[in-house]
Design a binder for these strands. Structure first.
Length: 932
RNA sequence: GGGCGCUUAGCUCAGUUGGAUAGAGUACUUCCUUGACAUGGAAGGGGUCACAGGUUCGAAUCCUGUAGCGCCCACCA
């Protein structure tokens, strides 16, 4: 026992216990009708991922929930897994082969994919190991990967199901194109961000006018050109019209006229459309149907030509004339130069705009006309909107509901095809012989359905990664199922899938606001479509982790605080506890390394309190003296150890406080107020259990004789610690396990046969131990102790110097309370003696103070500065007078008396009376001071 | 252009349905190496709860507006 070090060393415990939990299968959960299910599916991290603070927060919250519910006796499953992360992973591997001077095309599709799988096998579970470091109690043997065979089948089934319903279609549209990743992206994958650019005003001459004419000097009134404003001048090469608003008087005469597109010398028409904003720019807009979503609409409407001027990599193609082969940004500069030379660049204005950027590589997105696959979303969205509106799915905090609904109500078709290789290949086949319509199939078809030819070709594209993620809450459960699985029917029992029936819908989804659209919304749609039921009842949205100045943490900014570094320096429990304490109500959290000290210090506090308790515990006493089977990890009525009435106040107090705190913790956890739960436990354990209770208990413990007092104190101290450990376990799994095991071992209590604290029951509230009266009394006692300490500090004398205190208890306080705790007060205030007075007679040479129910006189062999003492008391009196005055005023207000609830009035009356009492007593102290 | 969040102690933030002398962590001041813990203990100082109106007997808390900061969404070239 004595070898317990005085500092908690996480390194010696964390890996050891994690291993033990895994070896004993303690994270495993399975269909168990005898128990209530509780299920959380992990937001699957990318296989390219490395643990950052966002993960740490996200997974700590999930682990707290899982561990809490597991201890509450629910069959708790935390379903883990990883996401193949199409673009991100492909990028990583491409970078890798680039070191050998290779491109993916050099290897070919098959060889390249082999390389990716290799990479995945080697590095793909890095983040899983890191989550283990964090203490995540996932059911690891279940871990799924979005490209597992079964999972892939599910993806294809879903695709085919939607295809059969006519919800999937192929079309040429202007989509978001990342020239670096060379693939289409969905709108969500191309978030807009502000950009400082220019608005370029370019002159488009009327046909018949020489382009070389010096326009600037033409002031005759008939302007031979139209000026358009654009932020992307290079796209002019693809212009096929100029549009003006039909109501715009300035341009009436130009409508229908033909302009000569500069540099290219294409004839383009001036068209009229109400879409054009007369206020913006010149009111005349160049129309580039193949490179702008709006222009695309105009192009369709006015039957314009669609001219694609760009290659997949962002360079200009053969339609760009002399500019062919140039990169889009380079071309912009050259074009501007050329325009300027020809006198066609009228002016340049600085202009702030926002434009899409690739969410993977941050490259500026190019709107790009291409043939892609889409999902029609409107009909899928409808039930998903209903489910939230009807409260079947609830967001915490509530405000995200609106964000969700707003997006869902304006939902656009989802571009799901990606021009990359790593991912689920689109299950569409084309017959190269009959060349009829393409068809979808869950399995590779042997022959064309029309002409029976086997000369088939699968679509080259792969599906958006999120097209697999949206099935996560149920596709993770299908293992060894038939590929043509009909999820909904499966639940009804046609195809047995016990686990899905048992765990679905899952309980709660924990995630960050950034992926509400990407993932949460789509999972709800998929769940309702394929399972005919919601995927989860609650959605808890936590904040985004930022650095101390409010910036998002990112490697490029160099402001990252690495969770693994924190774990290494402070321990996983410290990291977890600090994160939970900081994360409030889904608010963004601002981190600095220092913030983790709180968690570390708390862990150390728990460690040392436990160390103290272990050092003062007589195992034989606990083992031998208690009734058979009583010191038990199961929740037994504490009354089996002792009659509540036989306990002294201190013990009754701490038990009462523990259960009062526990009640609040339960409530907080049940409503996703994690920081509050952590805060209550922190406050209880540190400031009540350690600061007060253990100090109060010391005298009883020093007395090693087997007195009832000693025995009871040992049991209570032990019990409160043990229960606190259990309550703290979801937050700090490692240290609580370590100590719990030591308690187990050192007390030699054989009833602890279970392997771990994590499978012990959550502490049960023993209502009979809650005693508000005792709590009040102890507070009075604490007030006395504090007042004495305070007086002590005031006189600034040496610790050794003799000090005596006499107390006059007022009627309110139980004299008995002081009498029976006299020696405790002496100990905690380091007095020589404490007298409890019968009459309120002030002895000489003292300073004094009052508490709510006592007058306190402190005597010492020094000189009192009477004037200073007077000032102190007078100040107090005047403060109290002000308060009394305000209460008085309130009570004199007839409206208050009329409207306020009786209870409030009563309170104010009491408070006023108390204030008056205090004032009277303070005045008396002042009086006595004059006498002395 | 919409929507949302924030503004409380030097700093970082709590404050549940309106009814305390407005809390915590950290920093600061003084004292304490008293055998659980200096990653500690004791005692302190520090806030007109962004601003202006309003509702109410009563507002940090509810309503309206203003300012600043920060997010998210949107096809203004």
């Amino acid at each position: 026992m004595n070898e317990i070090p005085s500092r908690y060393n996480p390194k010696e415990t964390e890996d050891k216990w994690y291993k033990s939990w895994e070896e004993n299968n303690l994270f495993s959960a399975k269909s168990n009708p005898a128990k209530k299910p509780f299920c959380v599916v992990i937001p699957p991290p990318n296989i390219t991922g490395i643990l950052h603070m966002g993960h740490a927060l996200n997974n700590t919250i999930q682990d707290v929930l899982i561990r809490y519910h597991r201890m509450k006796g629910e069959e708790s499953l935390w379903m883990p897994g990883t996401d193949h992360a199409g673009i991100a992973t492909q990028n990583v591997v491409e970078k890798e082969i680039a070191k050998d001077g290779l491109k993916r095309q050099d290897l070919g599709r098959e060889k390249f994919l082999e390389r990716v799988w290799q990479w995945k096998e080697q590095y793909g579970s890095t983040i899983i190991h890191q989550l283990k470091k964090l203490g995540a109690s996932c059911d690891w043997p279940r871990a799924r990967f979005t490209m597992d065979e079964e999972y892939s089948k599910a993806v294809r089934s879903v695709f085919v199901a939607l295809w059969n319903k006519g919800l999937i279609y192929q079309d040429d549209k202007v989509i978001n194109w990342c020239p670096r990743c060379q693939t289409a992206l969905s709108d969500e994958e191309a978030p807009h961000s502000e950009l400082q650019g220019n608005l370029y005003y370019i002159r488009y001459p009327l046909r018949g006018q020489s382009p070389s004419i010096d326009f600037a000097q033409d002031k005759s009134g008939t302007v031979p050109y139209v000026v358009v404003a654009t932020t992307r001048p290079e796209t002019m090469l693809g212009d096929t019209a100029v549009a003006v608003n039909p109501k715009d008087k300035r341009y009436k005469k130009f409508i229908g006229k033909v302009l000569i597109l500069p540099l290219i010398n294409r004839e383009i028409k001036v068209i009229a459309d109400s879409m054009v904003d007369m206020e913006f720019g010149t009111g005349a807009v160049k129309v580039t149907p193949a490179h702008d979503p709006n222009d695309y609409i105009l192009g369709k409407k006015h039957k314009l030509e669609f001219i694609n001027i760009m290659l997949a990599d962002g360079r200009l193609n053969e339609n760009a004339g002399d500019y062919r082969g140039m990169d889009r940004f380079e071309a912009r500069e050259v074009i501007l130069e050329d325009l300027k030379e020809k006198g066609l660049l009228e002016k340049v204005q600085p202009h702030q705009l926002s434009a899409g950027h690739c969410y993977r590589c941050h490259t500026l997105i190019e709107p790009y006309l291409s043939r892609q696959w889409f999902v029609r979303m409107k009909s899928l969205a409808k039930p998903a909107i209903e489910a939230v509106k009807k409260g079947k799915i609830k967001f915490y905090p509530k405000r995200w509901t609106k964000v969700y609904l707003n997006w869902m109500e304006n939902i656009q078709d989802w571009c799901i095809s990606r021009q990359i290789w790593w991912g689920h290949r689109i299950p569409i086949w084309y017959c190269l012989d009959c060349r009829k319509e393409a068809f979808a199939s869950t399995e590779e078809p042997k022959a064309c359905r029309r002409c029976e030819s086997s000369n088939l070709k699968q679509d080259e594209d792969v599906l958006d990664t999120w097209f697999s993620s949206w099935l996560w809450p149920f596709a993770t459960f299908v293992k060894g199922q038939s590929p043509s699985i009909d999820f909904a029917r499966d639940r009804s029992g046609t195809v047995p899938c016990e686990e899905l029936k048992y765990f679905y819908p899952t309980s709660v989804l924990v995630t960050a606001p950034e992926i509400i659209f990407f993932w949460v919304a789509r999972m709800i749609m998929a769940g309702l479509e394929f399972m005919k039921d919601i995927p989860f009842g609650d959605v808890y949205i936590h904040g985004t982790v930022r650095d101390i100045s409010g910036k998002k943490m990112s490697k490029s900014l160099g402001n990252v605080i690495d969770p693994l570094e924190i774990i290494n320096d402070y321990g996983a429990d410290a990291l977890r506890f600090s994160l939970i304490s900081i994360a409030t109500g889904g608010q963004d959290i601002f981190l600095s390394k220092e913030k983790f000290q709180q968690g570390r210090n708390f862990a150390n506090k728990i460690w040392n309190a436990s160390r103290f308790i272990l050092m003062n515990l007589e195992p034989s006493l606990l083992k031998g003296q208690s009734p058979p089977g009583t010191v038990h990890c199961k929740e037994l009525d504490l009354c089996q150890f002792f009659k509540k009435e036989d306990l002294d106040m201190t013990n009754r107090w701490i038990l009462s406080r523990f259960y009062s705190a526990l009640k609040k913790v339960n409530k907080a956890l049940d409503t996703y107020r994690f920081n509050e739960a952590a805060g209550i436990l922190y406050g209880f354990f540190w400031h009540e259990f350690c600061d007060w209770y253990l100090e109060l208990a010391k005298p009883a413990l020093v007395n090693r004789k087997q007195s009832t007092e000693n025995r009871n104190t040992q049991i209570v101290m032990y019990k409160v610690l043990e229960k606190s450990l259990r309550a703290l376990h979801p937050f700090m799994p490692f240290i609580t396990e370590e100590i719990w095991q030591r308690l187990n071992q050192d007390t030699g209590i054989s009833e602890y046969q279970n392997t771990s604290i994590m499978v012990q029951p959550w502490p049960h509230i023993q209502e009979q131990m809650v005693d508000k009266k005792i709590e009040k009394q102890m507070e009075s006692l604490f007030a006395v102790i504090k007042a004495i300490r305070n007086l002590r500090t005031e006189i600034e004398i040496k610790p050794e110097q003799e000090i005596l205190v006499s107390i006059y208890p007022h009627a309110k306080i139980d004299r008995q309370l002081l009498e029976s705790n006299r020696s405790l007060v002496i100990k905690l205030t380091r007095l020589q003696d404490l007298k409890i007075l019968d009459a309120n007679n002030r002895p000489t040479a003292t300073i004094s103070d009052i508490t709510k129910d006592t007058d306190i006189y402190l005597h010492f062999s020094g000189i009192i500065e009477v004037s200073k003492e007077q000032v102190k008391i007078k100040k107090k009196i005047s403060e109290e007078l002000i308060r009394r005055e305000s209460k008085q005023k309130t009570l004199e207000n007839p409206a208050f008396i009329k409207n306020a609830p009786a209870e409030v009035i009563e309170n104010i009356k009491n408070e006023k009376k108390e204030l008056e009492d205090r004032i009277k007593r303070l005045e008396k102290l002042l009086d006595e001071l004059h006498c002395s």
